[in-house]
C-alpha cells in the first residue's frame, strides 16, 4: 500500500512538472495581427493636437515646464531635420497609430521566440521587443526613436522595458522627454481589445512616473501602406535658425487656460496637480458660457476645431 501511494504521488509530481510549462504558455495572449487605435481617451490632444500651454496631467519639474514654454512650433518647419521625425517609443502608441501590426519572430532552428515586433504606418515606426532574455546595450551605445526593448510575459500581460531612446516629446506642444528616460509598457488583451499602459520615468523632466494608457481594437482585415517623408524648405530662414521664445516671452502660454476657463496654475502641470485633492486647491471654477474648441472630440473624424454654426450640434452649450 505504501509503495502504491509513493508511486501515485510520483505520477502526480511528474504530471505537474510536465504541465507547468504548458500552463505558462497558455496564460499568454496572442497579440499578433492588425489593430486600429481608439482615440476616445484624450482625443483633442492626440488627434488635432494639444494646445500651447496645456501641461495638464504631466508631473513636470521646473526644467520641463521652462523647456516647454520656450518651444516655438515654427521649429518643426525651420529645422528641417524635425520634419520627418517619428514619435518616440513612449509616444508612438499615443499618436496616430492606424493601423498597428504585431507579429512574432522565431529562431528558425530552435523555434524559440526571439522577439515581438510592432509597426505603425505613420513614419513607419517599428519596435522590436526582444523576448529571448538578452541584456540591454551599454549606456554608450546609440539611441533610437523607438529605443531598445525587452519583454517578459507575466501571466497574460506582456511587460516591456525600454531604454536607449532619442530625445523626444511627452506632448506635441513642446513638452520634452529626455534621452535619459526609460519606460515600461504593460500589454493586455481583452477579447478584441488591446490596452497598453505606459509608465515613463524621466529623471530630467519628471518628478514622478507619467502613466497613461492607449487602446486598440482588433481588425484583421486592415492593410498597411508604405509611408514616405522627405524634408523640404518650408521656411526661408538662415542656416542654424532654431525658433524659440525667450523666457517669459511666450505669448501663448495662457491660451489654453483662457479658452477652457481653467486656473492658469492648474494648466502648468506638476505632480501636485495630478491627484483629486488638487480640486480643492482650485476652488470654484466658473463655467465658460460656451465651448469653442474640440467640443465633441471623440475620434479621428469627429474633432472639429471650431463649433459649427448650429450651437445645438458641435457648439454645444456647457450650461
Amino acid at each position: 500500500m505504501r509503495r502504491y501511494v509513493i508511486f501515485t504521488n510520483g505520477l502526480l509530481v511528474l504530471s505537474a512538472c510536465l504541465l507547468i510549462p504548458g500552463m505558462s504558455t497558455l496564460a499568454q495572449s496572442d497579440l499578433t495581427g492588425f489593430w486600429v487605435g481608439l482615440y476616445h481617451e484624450d482625443a483633442p490632444e492626440r488627434l488635432p493636437g494639444p494646445q500651447f500651454g496645456d501641461y495638464l496631467e504631466l508631473p513636470l519639474n521646473e526644467a520641463g515646464r521652462m523647456r516647454a514654454d520656450s518651444y516655438d512650433p515654427n521649429r518643426i518647419s525651420a529645422v528641417q531635420e524635425f520634419q520627418c521625425r517619428p514619435h518616440g517609443g513612449d509616444y508612438s502608441m499615443r499618436g496616430l497609430s492606424v493601423p498597428l501590426r504585431i507579429w512574432e519572430e522565431y529562431d528558425p532552428n530552435t523555434q524559440q521566440l526571439i522577439a515581438v515586433r510592432t509597426r505603425t504606418a505613420w513614419m513607419e515606426m517599428e519596435r522590436t521587443i526582444y523576448m529571448d532574455g538578452r541584456a540591454h546595450p551599454p549606456e554608450y551605445a546609440h539611441h533610437t526613436w523607438q529605443g531598445f526593448s525587452t519583454g517578459v510575459w507575466e501571466g497574460n500581460m506582456l511587460s516591456v522595458t525600454t531604454t536607449h531612446l532619442k530625445p523626444s516629446y511627452l506632448r506635441r506642444n513642446g513638452v520634452p522627454r529626455s534621452a535619459k528616460a526609460t519606460f515600461t509598457d504593460h500589454w493586455v488583451r481583452h477579447g478584441n481589445y488591446l490596452t497598453v499602459t505606459t509608465f515613463i520615468d524621466d529623471p530630467v523632466f519628471l518628478t514622478e512616473p507619467l502613466v497613461r494608457s492607449s487602446n486598440w481594437v482588433f481588425e484583421p482585415t486592415m492593410k498597411m501602406s508604405p509611408y514616405s517623408c522627405e524634408p523640404a524648405t518650408e521656411m526661408f530662414v538662415p542656416e542654424g535658425t532654431v525658433p524659440h521664445y525667450l523666457p517669459g516671452q511666450n505669448p501663448f502660454n495662457s491660451e489654453f487656460s483662457d479658452l477652457f476657463g481653467l486656473p492658469f496654475e492648474a494648466t502648468r502641470g506638476g505632480a501636485e496637480t495630478l491627484y483629486p485633492e488638487y480640486r480643492q486647491e482650485m476652488g470654484e471654477i466658473p463655467t465658460p458660457p460656451q465651448c469653442w474648441r474640440y467640443c465633441i472630440c471623440t475620434g479621428l473624424f469627429n474633432c472639429p476645431e471650431r463649433p459649427s454654426p448650429s450651437p445645438s450640434t458641435n457648439g454645444r452649450t456647457l450650461e
Binding site: 529645422v79 531635420e81 524635425f82 520627418c84 521625425r85 517619428p86 513614419m123 513607419e124 515606426m125 549606456e139 554608450y140 551605445a141 546609440h142 539611441h143 533610437t144 526613436w145 532619442k166 530625445p167 534621452a179 517623408c229
Partner: peptide
Amino acid sequence: VEAFQEGGTKVIPGHGRLCEEADVV
C-alpha cells in the same frame, strides 16, 4: 539620415554615447 530621421551617418562624439544626426540637432 537614412530615413525618418534615423540611421545614416554615425557620429562619434568627443565624450558620450554613439550618436546620429538627430542627436546633433
